[in-house]
Structures are given as structure tokens and as C-alpha cells.
Write a protein that binds this DNA or RNA. Structure first.
Lengths: 141, 141
DNA sequence: TCCGACCCTGCCGCCGGCGTCAGGGTCAAG
DNA sequence: CTTGACCCTGACGCCGGCGGCAGGGTCGGA
């Protein structure tokens, strides 16, 4: 299959696929005319890549994993080594999530505290946007 | 207070402070020699900025908030408008967190599934790092 | 024969939040 | 007078994941 087809099959753009290749995440043979030729397994592979990227891993993070992840990462049964590495990487992601969540929680707390005054309407859509003096106090002068 | 002092007081770098200023987040007066002169309140302000950045907001996100957030964001009692905007921004952050968390969960699920084979040692430290053929299968060939 | 769809390489651009020079002024202490 | 600690502006670099453009080859069909 050629790159356009692979793109359609995976939802990645052609550009992204070339990028993955250049990052060493996917490989291809070439047709005599220079066109990239992918094998079927590439579809799963690319989907896995995209899932991992969506999970917050960088392409570099993913590379060491890919040697093992030829099957379906999300449904298959990866090797034990993969598990180790994946867990390790996972830890990184979880730390990021935790960091964000933590400070977010502090914000929420602040909101809650102030909420005692403006209380009530918790999770609403609050279109807002006009807010504050905005332009009025650009700096602190 | 001058920039170096403010930096020490807030944990931000001098460079970051200048960057915040250029982003319109903090203001300063100038001494006759051109040196920036900050007032006391800047300390709190910068801390707030850093907290918000840590929470995942961009400097641009923060700007509209700052007009109001002169007090201690994390302990004070912001105005109702701030709350609205903050909630709105918060939603963005939460979405990001949710996205990451979601796919992370899928990974965890995969790990769990495979775990039935290699099971047991759940959250361990797993130093790993040697993993996989690594260099062995750079592409997919 | 020529169009249009597809493919190629190479390279610059962008967002965000600074780091890091480069090149120079200011000022108090020794 | 020099040193050293601080301050200034301006501008380029970096990471990550592509987007998008330029400039050109390769097909199959009308």
C-alpha cells in the first residue's frame, strides 16, 4: 500500500507518516519509481503510534517501544519487556498529569473558597470572555 | 526592588520575568538608569503567574486574568468575573488532562490484559531501559 | 497528448516558554 | 582605576509535531 492509502487507513496525514518514518518509527520499501510501499502491518503500527502520541508520549519515547509493538498494543498481549518500558513511560505521563491536576486542584480550591460569595452555579458553561478590566490593567502600574 | 531580587523572591529566572513583562503580564517602572523597578505586589503576582503556568495555562491565557488577580490567587478571594474566566480556562486544562488520562487508561488496560501472563508486580519501579531489540528493529522492514 | 491524481525531496514556519549568547551600560567597593 | 556584580536590549536556538510550500517526477485514462 502507498502512503496516501495508509494515511486514509490510519487517519494520519501523509506528512505525519513521512515524519514518523524520519523519526524511525515506521519503515517502508520503495517501488522502483521511488514511491513508498507499506505492508499491511503498518496500519496497526501507525494506529499504535497515534494512540501513544495521544497518550502524551513523544515520538522519541515511542521509538524504543516499537521494536516490540507490532501487534495491537491496545488489545494484544505485549511482551514483558514492553510492559516494563511502557510502565516506565507511563510513569512519566502520569507525573505530568499529576502535576497539572495538582495545581488545577489548587485553582479549584481557590474558586471554591471564593465561591462562598458567588457560590452555587458550579460546573456551568459560563460564556464569560468580556471579563475584568482586561485592557484596563495590562500591567501592574 | 530590582529584577534580580524579584527573581530570587519568586523562583523565576530573570529571563522569565522579562518574558512575562513582554507578554504583558507584569509591569515595572524604570530607574533613571533604565533598570526595572518592581513594587512589592509583583512578588505575589509573579507567584500567581507561575502557579497558573504550572497548572497548564499559557501566558496568553493568564493575561486576561491578571487584571484582577492582584491578590493571592491561591488563598485570596478573587472577583466573580475572575471566577468565570478561570473556570473557563480551567475547562481547557481539564480537557487536556482528561485526554491524556483517557488514553493512558487504555494503555493501563493493555498492560493489565497482558499482566495476566506476566502478572503480579503492579506499580513497581522496574528500572528497565535495556528493553527490546531496540536497535534491532529500527523500522519495520 | 495532456490532465489530474498521486508521489517525491527539501526546507522554512509556527506555537510556547524560555535559555543563551553577544555586546554594552551602571555603580559601589577595594 | 579596575573589578565584579548587576542591569540593559536584541536576537537566535531549542523542543515537538507536524503544516505547507516550492519544484519536480510518475502514472493512468480520456
Amino acid at each position: 500500500m502507498r502512503i496516501g492509502e495508509l494515511a486514509r487507513a490510519t487517519g494520519a496525514t501523509v506528512r505525519a507518516l513521512r515524519h514518523y518514518e524520519q523519526a524511525g518509527l515506521i519503515g517502508s520499501e520503495r517501488e522502483p519509481n521511488g514511491y513508498r510501499e507499506y505492508r499491511e502491518s503498518a496500519v496497526v503500527r501507525v494506529r499504535n503510534i497515534r494512540a501513544l502520541v495521544a497518550a502524551g508520549l513523544t515520538l522519541a519515547d515511542i521509538r524504543p517501544l516499537l521494536g516490540c509493538l507490532d501487534g495491537d498494543v491496545l488489545a494484544g498481549r505485549p511482551s514483558e519487556r514492553v510492559l516494563a518500558i511502557a510502565r516506565e513511560r507511563l510513569a512519566v505521563v502520569e507525573r505530568r498529569i499529576a502535576d497539572q491536576t495538582e495545581t488545577r486542584d489548587r485553582l479549584v480550591a481557590a474558586l471554591a473558597a471564593a465561591g462562598e460569595a458567588a457560590a452555587g452555579v458550579a460546573a456551568a458553561g459560563v460564556a464569560a470572555a468580556e471579563g475584568c478590566p482586561a485592557e484596563g490593567c495590562p500591567a501592574e502600574r
